[in-house]
């Protein structure tokens, strides 16, 4: 009993470390925060109730992301049959010390097609290698390379086309 409780706590804490990134990935795939939250939470429950989980962290992350991705693919197929794709939800912007640059890049990111946005999130935001992202998506690594380069070109074009410039990030220097 004690061992089960400790194992569950360890699993929960491990998942918690990935939770924000997992939710962000769900947002990238759905463009709908409510649906992303539901999917991420369902994926989390599957993870927490799985009989076993990968021991090493990179494999664990791939496993986690693939559970969420497969779940969203299944839901997407079901939803397409039932009612079509939901409309994207407008993002809420926050103004902090680096709000301008965050907003310009985030606005551009929101405009990318889902397949492109997915590789940007996986590689740039979540730190997956091309090979890891390719295995997760189920495409050759060359496709990830090509898709990512086109995504970045599109991001830069959107930022440039909107006459928005990314401003420098300023940080205080500690004494």
């Amino acid at each position: 009993m004690w061992r089960d409780g400790r194992k569950a706590a360890a699993r929960n804490a491990r998942l918690e470390r990935e939770w924000a990134r997992l939710y962000r990935y769900a947002c990238a795939l759905t463009r709908d925060r409510e649906r992303a939250a539901d999917a991420a939470q369902e994926a989390a429950l599957r993870v927490l109730t799985a009989r076993s989980e990968p021991a090493d962290d990179p494999a664990y992350r791939r496993w986690l992301y693939s559970i969420l991705r497969n779940l969203l693919i299944d839901q997407g197929r079901r939803q397409q049959r039932e009612q079509g794709t939901p409309a994207p939800e407008p993002a809420d912007w926050r103004f902090d010390e680096r709000a301008i640059s965050a907003i310009t890049v985030r606005q551009a990111l929101e405009q990318l097609p889902v397949a492109m946005k997915e590789v940007v999130v996986l590689v740039d935001l979540d730190g997956f290698s091309y090979a890891e992202a390719a295995a997760l998506i189920g495409v050759p690594a060359g496709t990830v390379m090509s898709r990512l380069s086109r995504a970045r070109a599109m991001l830069l074009a959107i930022i440039g086309g909107a006459n928005i410039r990314v401003l420098p990030v300023r940080h205080a220097v500690s004494g």
Partner: peptide, 29 residues
């Protein structure tokens, strides 16, 4: 561009679901 993407704030993240019933009581103990 990569720097700015990596610096994007996480935003509001929903709470992580917890398992109810026995595992939770074990955790509390």
């Amino acid at each position: 561009l990569k720097q700015e993407l990596q610096a994007l704030p996480a935003g509001d993240v929903p709470p992580l679901p917890t398992l109810s019933a026995s595992p939770r009581s074990y955790w509390r103990q």
